[in-house]
């Protein structure tokens, strides 16, 4: 066996060890129900924003807390606490991947990914909304 083969072997083993750490830390997509069975384990839940509840975010009281309700793919609803500022455009999101932990009575979200129709505006359904209707063009007022 050549020296280079021994080194290659060592490097590959090191790579596999590194990857096994990665694989060990991988998590799974769950629903709120199945996540409840894995309490305090980091999971990902695919949800949609429950628009019947208002999103609570008051940057004067706490700019690092957003509370909203979400419905998972089985239709189960849960309260979600996200310890960060309200994600831009969350109202318009088509789907959210919540990353975090199922706690008692709520889901503690540490990271979320949103699927937004407008992200790259290649989605024509979203773009269509920006087409003027046959009537007069609506003027938006930008004021802050």
């Amino acid at each position: 066996m050549k020296k280079i083969h021994i080194i290659l072997l060592l490097l590959v083993i090191a790579g596999i060890v590194g990857m096994s750490f990665f694989i060990k830390d991988l998590t799974t997509y769950e629903t709120f129900d199945s996540a409840a069975g894995k309490k305090d384990r980091f999971v990902v839940v695919k949800v949609q924003l429950d628009k019947t509840h208002p999103i609570e975010y008051d940057e004067m009281k706490d700019p690092n807390k957003t509370i909203f309700y979400a419905v998972d793919q089985d239709g189960k609803q849960s309260k979600v606490i996200y310890n960060n500022s309200k994600p831009t455009d969350i109202e318009r999101s088509e789907g959210i991947d919540l990353n975090g932990y199922m706690r008692d009575g709520y889901f503690e979200c540490t990271k979320l990914q949103m699927k937004c129709p407008s992200k790259y505006k290649d989605d024509m359904n979203a773009a269509q909304k920006n087409l003027p209707s046959a009537s007069n063009e609506k003027k938006l007022e930008y004021k802050y």
């Binding site: 990857m19 991988l26 998590t27 769950e30 980091f42 991947d97 540490t110």
Partner: peptide
């Protein structure tokens, strides 16, 4: 098969290999 997702700390998953 349940689809897999990245663990809590994506950047660290990469960093701890690439640091070596």
């Amino acid at each position: 098969f349940k689809p897999l997702a990245f663990g809590e700390d994506t950047a660290f998953a990469y960093n701890r290999i690439q640091i070596f």
